[in-house]
Amino acid sequence: MDSRKAILWLTETVAISSDDSDTSSWSDVCTDKLESSDDENEVDDEDRLFFPLMQYLIRLRRKRVDDYLHIIDSWTDSEFKNRLRLSRKTAYRLIDELEKSGFIASHKFGLKPLEPKLCFYIFLSFIANTEPLTPIATRFDISISSTFRVIRRVVAWILTKLNEAVKWPQDFNDIQCICDMFHSKTGIPNMLGVIDCTHVRIEKPKNAREYCNPKGYFSIILQATVDANLRFTNIFCGEPGSSNCSRVLKKSPLYNTAMQNRNALFPHNTFLVGHSGYPSLPWLVPPFRENKRLTPQQREYNSLHASTRKMSDKAFTMLKGRFRRIKLFTVYRNIAFITDTIVAACILHNYCLNEHDHLEEI
């Protein structure tokens, strides 16, 4: 085997072995090829040096992956939470659920797949920061395409938990509890939530004009309703940044359901509050329009209204502070993928609140 062919074969083999494959299998291939060549007296000095080198490089790759997992496991609980944005307890619980879900392949036609623990760490590394895929792939020593494929699979799995994690209150006791908590915190009775929108910055898409928001950057919109514990009770995501909040609301399933059957979502005269950009509806109350004719009571209500709306701001701040990817999607131009990732972050936001997994710096 001449040196050029050896280099080419080495490059192709390493590329394949870095793409979710079983390194021991490729090690066996090298050994078998060397042994078969020995039998046929076809092994020259270059071959005898090349195949052991191939085996060494493959084993080295597996060692680098194992070493980085060992590094993560060696982090203190504080370091783990600071870097991956979830507590170790919450992460382990989700890893167990991911392993049982079937979303991560248990076999790859004789090749060893990436384990759920590694896949979830890759996803957390992606959503916890705004760095591109290349350094993430480098740390875990897998290809960029495999890294992106792992992220999409974990996102798809998290989306199956949407109805379980982001729930509209239906039971009378739940509704009453939320209203009582809002009343005690804000002084406003019969209030079921705060509705608001936030923009998620993206790279310039193909239909750029549609996604350019009034602040001059490209974005997609996340609409959410928030309860008194800062949980999301309803989300609607994916509308282009040029849309205003009223237009987004009217496109959402929440609006259609409430307009057709108010009592299905807002029984007992309950309602949402929203800023002045929202329309005044039987189930949605914006503040009184500022003018010189407002009574003292109306001005006092506007003051309570403004302080109440800060809850949605705080919820969005928590979401983007924990999952920094939601602040900015660089490189990625697939709107469907971005939307799914934002929804997945909202699901994890609620999951963390349910697990009492809080970040102190937020």
Rank of each mutant, 00 (worst) to 15 (best):
D171A: 12
S184F: 11
M191T: 11
D340G: 11
Y211T: 02
A91H: 14
D67P: 00
H349W: 12
N302V: 01
M54R: 09
V200S: 09
V155G: 02
H349L: 10
N302L: 03
F337V: 14
N229Y: 03
A165W: 06
D38Q: 12
I202V: 06
T339Q: 13
V43Y: 07
I95A: 14
G241N: 08
F218W: 06
S312H: 01
T147M: 05
F266R: 10
F126L: 05
D19C: 11
F126G: 02
S106W: 03
L114M: 14
L192G: 04
K320I: 05
T134P: 00
E290W: 01
T198M: 10
I221R: 08
S37V: 02
V29T: 03
D77F: 05
P240N: 05
W26D: 01
R324F: 00
V43F: 07
F323R: 05
F323E: 05
S145A: 14
L118Y: 10
T11D: 08
D39S: 12
L249M: 06
T308D: 01
F140C: 08
L284G: 00
R231E: 14
S27P: 02
T11E: 03
F266L: 08
V285L: 07
F80K: 10
F109T: 14
S145Y: 12
I220F: 06
N163V: 03
W168P: 02
Y56K: 10
L222P: 04
M191S: 08
D32T: 10
S243R: 14
Y351A: 03
C119E: 10
N207S: 11
S27L: 09
E164M: 00
L230E: 10
C179A: 14
C237M: 10
S246I: 03
K81H: 15
S74V: 08
D313V: 10
I202D: 04
A208V: 03
S252A: 06
V155C: 04
L69G: 06
E290T: 08
R309N: 01
D77W: 01
R209I: 02
D67F: 08
T186A: 07
P189D: 02
C179K: 06
A258F: 01
L159Q: 11
L272S: 04
E300N: 13
P253I: 10
L304D: 02
R299N: 12
S101I: 08
S25T: 15
K33C: 11
D44F: 07
R289S: 08
R324V: 00
C197H: 02
K63S: 08
R325L: 11
S280H: 09
R83D: 06
D227P: 05
Y56V: 06
I142G: 04
I338R: 07
E46T: 07
Q55F: 04
Y301I: 03
S78Y: 13
D19F: 12
N263F: 11
P214M: 06
W9S: 12
T317C: 11
F316H: 02
S21Y: 09
N213G: 12
D357K: 05
A15E: 14
T341G: 05
R64M: 11
S280K: 09
Y92E: 15
S78C: 09
I72D: 09
Y332E: 15
R152Q: 15
A224M: 01
N234A: 13
S106F: 01
F120A: 09
S307L: 10
G102M: 06
L133C: 05
A336E: 15
L49D: 13
W283Q: 00
N41P: 01
V248A: 04
T130C: 04
G274E: 03
K63F: 07
K327Y: 11
L53I: 12
